[in-house]
Computed example of a mutant assay.
Amino acid sequence: MTYFNANLIWRFCKWHNKCRNTKSISSLVGSIPSLFGKNVYVSHVLYTSEATNSNKPSSSWKDSKTLNYFALLDIPEKFNIDKQQLYKNFQSKMRENHPDKYSTPSHTKQQYNDAVFISSQLNRAKQVLESPLWRAQHLVMIRKHQQSSSERQSHDEDILTEETKITDQNFLFEIMDTRLQVEDYGSKNDVAKLDQLLQENSQRMEHIISLIQKEFDQTKPHLFTIKELLAKLTYFDRIEAEIKEQLPAR
């Protein structure tokens, strides 16, 4: 049996709050619909752990608009995507909308500014869709928006809240134990042990991703279940980042 003292638990709680601290991606306003077309919009706020502190989540997901990145890159709206098609479509659209193409005297400043904005959103779309974690978050928001009020299950109503609470104590202690091992092996520069932790963590992530895929494959995905899986995947994603920070550059 593993025992944890109060100081270790306090340190874990500080790290735990980092994983729960989610921020919204910037809302799109003004004349943006004319740039992309109305079909690429979905009313929601996309929460990620990587967004800036300057943009706080809306109190209601219905209050904000962000792009539907699947539609923007002409990718089928599903969790299991063809990444080769994703990159192919991204490159094609970037060539078409690259700011350099509109920097000549024959183009207006507005055309150039539009190209800058579009290219930034294309880059963001690729970044979100190539990440299983962010792609799943994005797809959950879209699925939630597509449901009618009568279809929404009562226990799914908090799917878009700012914080996701995990009540599985065994899981939380497993995360704490792994987190402390990362600190320990990192302080000792034990690359072999860190590599082993990275491999084990990757296996856990793949397992969670497979469960998310299975849930999305259902005719009516259970959003609350996906939310819980995403919360766990967020922890593993953070652990992966911390392990890589401890490893030497390769």
Rank of each mutant, 00 (worst) to 15 (best):
F4T: 01
Y47A: 06
F79G: 00
I32S: 12
Q84S: 05
Q91R: 13
L229N: 02
K18N: 11
M1P: 13
V182P: 10
I239P: 05
N68E: 07
T108M: 01
A115R: 09
Q121F: 03
L129D: 04
T178N: 08
K38M: 05
T2V: 15
E200D: 13
E245Q: 15
V182A: 05
K65D: 05
K88P: 06
C19T: 14
E228N: 12
L46M: 11
E174G: 11
R250F: 15
K193F: 08
V182L: 04
K101R: 14
H98K: 04
R95Y: 10
K188F: 12
V182C: 06
I166D: 03
N53A: 13
K93A: 07
K232A: 02
S154H: 13
Q137T: 03
P76N: 10
K62A: 03
A125N: 03
S148H: 01
I175T: 09
V45N: 11
M205E: 12
S150E: 14
K18H: 13
Y185V: 01
T52Y: 11
P99S: 01
P33E: 09
A136E: 02
V140R: 00
P33A: 03
I243C: 07
K244F: 03
L194K: 08
L194E: 07
S106M: 10
S24Q: 15
L198F: 08
Y102R: 10
F79V: 00
K83C: 05
V40W: 13
N68G: 02
K14L: 12
E245S: 09
Q121V: 06
R95P: 00
T164S: 06
N123A: 03
S49M: 07
L197N: 10
L133M: 03
L229F: 11
T52K: 15
I81L: 05
P221M: 04
H16C: 00
S103E: 13
S24A: 15
R179N: 12
Q111Y: 12
T104S: 14
N17T: 04
Q91A: 11
L233N: 04
K188R: 15
D184N: 13
Y3F: 12
A71D: 10
P105W: 10
S58K: 07
K144H: 13
P105L: 08
L180C: 02
K38F: 09
K109M: 12
F4I: 02
T225H: 07
F79A: 00
F117V: 00
F90R: 03
V191N: 11
S27W: 12
I159R: 00
Y41Q: 01
I239E: 06
R204F: 10
L35Q: 15
V45K: 15
P248C: 01
N170K: 14
